[in-house]
Design a protein around this nucleic acid. Structure first.
Length: 586
RNA sequence: GAGGGCGUAGCUCAGCUGGUAGAGCAUCGGCCUUUUAAGCCGCUGGUCCAGGGUUCGAAUCCCUGCGCCCUCACCA
């Protein structure tokens, strides 16, 4: 009996732990022998409570019910039935198939690190000597069984946790009887806890030579093929819980995502920006032109919109006197799905009072470079993205909207007559309903139609580039350039052909802003459906806020999902979202 | 929205111009105390996405539907 129950928050919990600690692989920190290794707080995964508290909540309570009830046998797949039978067999031995709290578990990575060559050599030389004291370290690890080789009286298991795989040997001679019998009943995919000495096999593989093996959870579903892994992208997205353990590189991407977000957040805070949270449920969905999701609030009996951008609220904060603010959170846009778009996506928006477009361009460039450096580690911040190699160290390029236009079409964008002719040539479908449509279109929209067709593709995708000097007419929240009001103080960062971040010198004159809003609404009435117009409402409170006085400001929005795609070399947004939007099953 | 591709055992995938549905891994039974995708022997396993059609005969050809992927279009 190695453990005694420690005081627990709940009596029921204490009883369970006592039961468990009496089990074969039970472990309790109090009886640590000198060479016993416990976890250190070396990474985010090891923070207090992270690993352990997951065992303490309601889920545990639910899973602790000792005799699971089986569904109707005819509805169960044969492979699942066999696994259920193994679970019952383990329960019949007195083991708890769904385990319980276990303290002192360390990662497979750490277990590998504490391997002691000297102690192992000494053991191999002296193990037959009477009174010899084994100095090889004792560890407890937990993980999914991803490989199993049953040699009869010796069973090799590979346990996988979030840090990697580690081999466990369960021998009839040295493991306790319950542990050995459990090993015989273990299916691939089960979560087990192994305790034993860390040694090296003849072939040099670090291995935990088990003295105890305990169940932690049963995998009733046959796991993916052990070598090929899970390839079916649909199952990977729909059942991310399988993907994450069956394909370690998936977990890697999401660990990196978390580190990138944390890094960007720390960078912003380091620059003096205050992180805030503004409403996601809004009575008017403003700050961008996109179709919002509509929902309904019962208590007030009003329709609400999921936000499409936090912009108008963040600007209200500048009015209130907050000098620099940012928010990293979800936006929702009721639009299509593709490799770069998910209906909910994460955006960093930041506003800098008394700054301008240049202020926030520098901010974005530095933040992106900083994150890239973290990913690159010691080397230069040069990262692959598909076939491209992107250098984040060198200064980002700049090219004006007008120059790209000219590069693409061979004439200046000020030649609007020629632009109309060009658009008629390329887009006859625009004339289908109204032969004069293009002649009636606003000149700036004509130019922008053409620009979006071919302008961005003039860029070198491997060079992060700011496109500057957008036309004012397509930038309603942006201040026009003082020396040329037809152009706006706006710059968009493009990397690898993706729009990563727009930057603006924000409009802060309430009268100009109001006029632009009205103009925009007018334009919408002409060519958008009634349904779409329902959400293009005039935000009077925002104008009122500007009347109170907003300092001049620079603002930017950085697409976090796309940044993560770039830095982790994932070609589709779905590979950087844990649970991408999928059509419901059935 | 248009075009293309894919959907076969739990998983990864073959299956040719139409002729009894296959492999590897997993599972199941047997042997094995230093294996490395363990090995050896034996066995199982299918709504070929769904529905309809052509045909003596359909996983295969045709039509419709569903799902996923890709390209394009739409999208401040």
């Amino acid at each position: 009996m190695r453990g005694r129950a420690r005081p627990r928050p709940s009596p029921a919990g204490a009883a369970r732990i006592r039961d468990y600690d009496a089990g074969p692989a039970g472990c309790s920190p109090e009886d640590d022998s000198p060479q016993r290794y416990k976890g250190t707080e070396s990474s985010g995964w090891e923070r207090p409570g992270c690993f352990e508290c997951a065992c303490r909540g309601a889920d545990l309570r639910r899973s602790m019910s000792d005799t699971p009830s089986n569904p109707a046998p005819e509805s169960i797949h044969k492979l699942e039935a066999q696994r259920r039978a193994n679970r019952e067999a383990a329960a019949a031995l007195g083991l708890k198939p769904y385990g319980g709290r276990t303290d002192g578990i360390i990662t497979s990575e750490l277990a590998r690190e504490v391997y002691d060559e000297a102690a192992n050599t000494e053991f191999n030389a002296n193990s037959k000597t009477p009174g010899y004291a084994d100095r090889r370290p004792v560890v407890t690890i937990a993980g999914r069984v991803v490989l199993a080789r049953d040699n009869g009286k010796l069973i090799w298991l590979s346990l996988r946790d979030h840090t990697g795989d580690l081999q466990v040997a369960v021998s009839q001679r040295e493991c306790d009887e319950m542990g050995f019998r459990l090993a015989k009943l273990t299916d691939l995919g089960d979560v087990v806890i192994a305790t034993g000495r860390v040694m090296k096999t003849r072939t040099g593989e670090v291995t935990v030579w088990a003295t105890g093996l305990a169940p932690a959870s049963k995998c009733l579903v046959p796991p993916p093929e052990k070598h090929a892994g899970l390839h079916d992208v649909e199952i990977r997205y729909r059942q991310r819980y399988v993907d994450l353990w069956a394909n370690p590189e998936t977990l890697k991407v999401f660990e990196l995502r978390s580190r990138i977000v944390a890094r960007v957040r720390a960078f912003m805070q380091g620059r003096g920006y205050l992180e805030v949270e503004t409403p996601m449920l809004q009575t008017l969905a403003g700050g961008a032109a996109a179709r919002p999701f509509v929902t309904h609030m019962n208590a007030l009996d009003i329709d609400l919109f999921m936000r499409i951008a936090p912009e108008l609220y963040l600007k209200r904060l500048l009015v209130g006197g907050l000098p620099r603010v940012f928010e990293i959170n979800r936006n929702f846009r009721n639009e299509g799905l593709d490799k770069q778009h998910n209906p909910e996506f994460t955006m960093l928006e930041a506003y800098h009072a008394h700054g301008d477009v240049e202020t926030v361009m520098e901010l974005t460039e530095s933040a992106v470079r900083d994150a890239a450096k973290m990913i690159a580690g010691d080397g230069p911040a040069v990262l692959p993205f598909g076939d491209l190699t992107i250098d984040y160290d060198r200064g980002f390029d700049r090219v004006s909207y007008g120059e790209l236009f000219e590069r693409a079409y061979g004439f200046a964008m000020t030649d609007t007559a020629r632009a109309r002719e060009e658009l008629k040539k390329h887009h006859p479908h625009l004339l289908k309903n109204n032969p004069r449509a293009i002649d009636e279109m606003d000149a700036a929209l004509v130019i922008n139609e053409l620009f979006e067709e071919k302008g961005e593709s003039q860029l070198d995708p491997s060079r992060p580039t700011f496109i500057t000097d957008y036309p004012s007419a397509i930038s309603p929240l942006t201040r026009p350039k003082p020396d040329n009001p037809a152009l706006a103080d706006r710059a968009d960062l493009f990397i690898a052909g993706m729009e990563i971040a727009p930057h603006y010198t924000e409009l802060n004159d309430p009268d100009v802003q109001e006029a632009k809003f009205r103009e925009q609404l007018k334009g919408m009435d002409a060519e958008t459906s009634a349904e779409e117009n329902t959400f293009r409402t005039f935000d009077e409170d925002f104008i009122r806020a500007l009347k109170v006085g907003m300092p001049p400001a620079g603002g930017m929005g950085l697409g976090i999902d796309r940044l993560v795609m770039l830095l982790t070399n994932q070609r589709t947004i779905r590979d950087v979202l844990l649970f991408p939007m999928m059509r419901p099953e059935e």
